[in-house]
Design a protein around this nucleic acid. Structure first.
Lengths: 173, 173
DNA sequence: ACTATAAGTAATTGATGAATCACTAACTAG
DNA sequence: CTAGTTAGTGATTCATCAATTACTTATAGT
């Protein structure tokens, strides 16, 4: 299998990557499957061989984006000293925002989508991240872990907005 | 002029109110002007007597939502003691989230819309709220006002998400 | 009554988009 | 070789929607 080999799994991942870009740039509802297909360099109908609906494609894209955050936080916890735990987590999240801005933009969009399946995916993602951070803070013996976990998430959410609107001043200069 | 009198200004406000509801519930791009019209109990084309485009209607709706927050914060600052300033501002924002949830959902949507005019409106709204909070904290002699203002906004943004996804546990139980 | 203007709508238009269908080309196992 | 499977596309379908047009009804001033 050479690098240009197009396995079914590769195609699926390529489509998801294209969808993350296009959905983030154009907006999920406004973006068309034709635009996603063009970005993925395939024909529009071929998307539906891998995803039964546009919404299924969005769900797959969200799954990728949440896995990104969760895996990153797990890595920090495994390898880090518990004294610098919070700054390490902050840095990890900022790195994701730098490198995978589109995934964050997609998550932000999905926060207000009312379809049950999307809401469930978002609840699961947020819930798991919250649980991980809370466990980490408790395990590290940080005082008021509940409140600190909330403020950690809160800072992250403002960070998202500051990035999305290109307003660095919101994060206190 | 009785209460059922339909002045041009009233109609405009009614349309904006209907748009806030429909856009928040359905999503701006997915919502149709026909749905807004139905909610406002007018015909679909009549919307375009007041707003030249769907986007102009969104801008008007965002204007209303930001004015809501800004006016509320101003009122807190005028009438409140500076010792309880921060909790008063928090309560004021929570009241808005309770009473005007749709306006917040609309703002959340607009955070990721890439059209220049929308981004500009969002920057203006966020910028003004940030300025007000920062001025208030500085005026009240709160230490580290910059950082405290950032954390105030951050908490508000997580509060939005917690409300939108119906996840009260995110705010630390 | 009469005319101007405001309030409002039905019908249409032109464009667009998700999803399906019908098909072709390339590879693979026996 | 050939029968079956995988990869892929062009053309079409059916629905939808923002925006326009052309029209009707009501109101107010003279």
């Amino acid at each position: 299998m050479g690098k240009s080999d197009a396995t079914s799994v590769n195609r699926k991942e390529e489509i998801i990557s294209a969808a993350i870009e296009v959905f983030a740039e154009i907006g999920y509802y406004r973006a068309t499957t034709a635009q996603v297909a063009q970005r993925a360099k395939i024909s529009q109908p071929y998307i539906f061989r891998f995803f039964s609906t546009k919404e299924a494609l969005l769900l797959a894209a969200l799954e990728v984006s949440w896995t990104r955050v969760i895996d990153s936080f797990h890595k920090v916890m495994e390898s880090g000293l518990s004294e610098q735990l919070e700054p390490d987590l902050i840095r990890a999240y900022e790195d994701i925002l730098d490198s995978y801005r589109n995934e964050t933009l997609l998550q932000m969009q999905a926060q207000t989508i009312q379809e049950d399946s999307i809401r469930e995916a978002m609840r699961k993602g947020f819930g798991e991240v919250h649980r991980i951070v809370l466990d980490a803070f408790q395990g590290a013996g940080i005082p008021n872990p509940q409140e600190r976990a909330t403020m950690f998430l809160a800072r992250g959410m403002l960070c998202n907005i500051s990035s999305a609107l290109d307003m660095p001043e919101l994060m206190g200069k």
